[in-house]
Amino acid sequence: MRASRFPERGLGTGNAFDEVYRQFDRIGGTHRVVCDEVDQLEDANTLLDELPRARANGHITDAKVGVIGISNDYTFRQTLSPKVKDTLMETEISVSPYDAAALRTMLEHRADRAVVDEACDTSAIAKAAALAAQDMGNAPQALDLLRVGAELAEQHGEAPVTDAHIETARERVQRGRVATVIRDQTEHAQYILEAIGNLQTSGEVPARSKEIQRTYERVAESHAASPLSTLKRIQDHLSDLYMLGFLRRHEQNKGLSGGQYYEYELDLDPAIVLETRTEVAEHA
């Protein structure tokens, strides 16, 4: 028995589960379904309720199923329905960030296969591991630092890869990561970031939401877009961008005469914001 032919117009959720169950029973034994970044599922409740109950509900008879969910969001389980929590009877395993020694071992293993002999200083590997450990403590970041450092050395015809290449790589990787997150924001959130970037470049921050609104309207119009019509909408976006870590927010209280209000400024390099917005506009 082979997997059923995938229909040209796709499968409904029920059809997809039925096919998965047929394959589980065909293979038999115990299956572990691993969902990396499980918090990104649009409807995690359905999947996490359906699979663990498959045998009890008679969908499979010759197999057993378990689910492993991987997430960096420690609050994810709080979003699950009570029914799903009862179904899972979950056990949480917390994985701490890698330290510099562990990251260095990983990088040495990769470099041994990806880089020709003597093309990378051992100190550069240690530098990449230490920088990644200080920041997020994850392997992909350390690998990015080493990869970009090697690319920089190759572009300039230099060998071996040194600490200086890794330092330059850190700046490039950080800029790339921030730029990607900016691109992920909505159109008007990006216009607001561009507006604050302009204000910050000209030394006009921290700025109140009304001041940001005026600059934002000019930015939106320059991109041939209709600005959001109310200050409340702008303030909602400012609050969201603050929560996401893009902005610093300063609370001001002028008493009975001036009232209480917030002022905002970017919590990242305005040059990255403006460069990213220019690139997005050029490719729009």
Rank of each mutant, 00 (worst) to 15 (best):
L193A: 06
R5N: 07
T87V: 15
G12I: 04
R32T: 13
Y262D: 09
Q190R: 15
L247K: 07
K85G: 05
D184M: 05
G66P: 00
G29W: 07
L103W: 01
A281M: 10
L41D: 02
R113P: 05
L244E: 14
R9M: 11
K232W: 11
A44S: 13
G259Y: 02
A139V: 14
S239P: 08
K210E: 12
R177V: 02
S71T: 15
S81M: 10
T61V: 11
L143M: 15
A129C: 10
L103F: 07
H237P: 00
E194P: 00
D112Q: 13
R218I: 10
Y216G: 01
L88P: 07
V34E: 11
A142Q: 06
C35Q: 06
A207N: 03
D112W: 04
A130R: 03
S4L: 12
L51D: 00
I70T: 04
L274Q: 07
A220S: 14
C120D: 01
F246N: 03
A189F: 10
A169L: 13
N45Q: 10
A102H: 10
L146W: 01
D236E: 14
E211K: 11
V34N: 05
A44H: 02
M1Y: 02
Q23L: 15
A16T: 13
L107H: 01
N72C: 12
A207P: 04
E151F: 08
M106R: 12
E90F: 08
E50N: 05
Y74P: 03
L48G: 01
P82R: 12
L193T: 02
L103T: 05
K127V: 07
Q200I: 02
V116M: 03
A63Y: 09
Q155C: 06
Y216H: 10
A164F: 01
T122G: 10
H31K: 06
A111M: 09
I212D: 00
E37F: 02
D269F: 06
A153W: 00
Q78H: 12
Q213T: 05
D184K: 08
S222Y: 03
F6Q: 11
V273D: 00
R77K: 07
D73P: 03
V65G: 05
G149Y: 00
P227F: 06
V280Y: 04
D121H: 04
L143E: 10
G157E: 07
S226I: 14
R175P: 00
E42D: 07
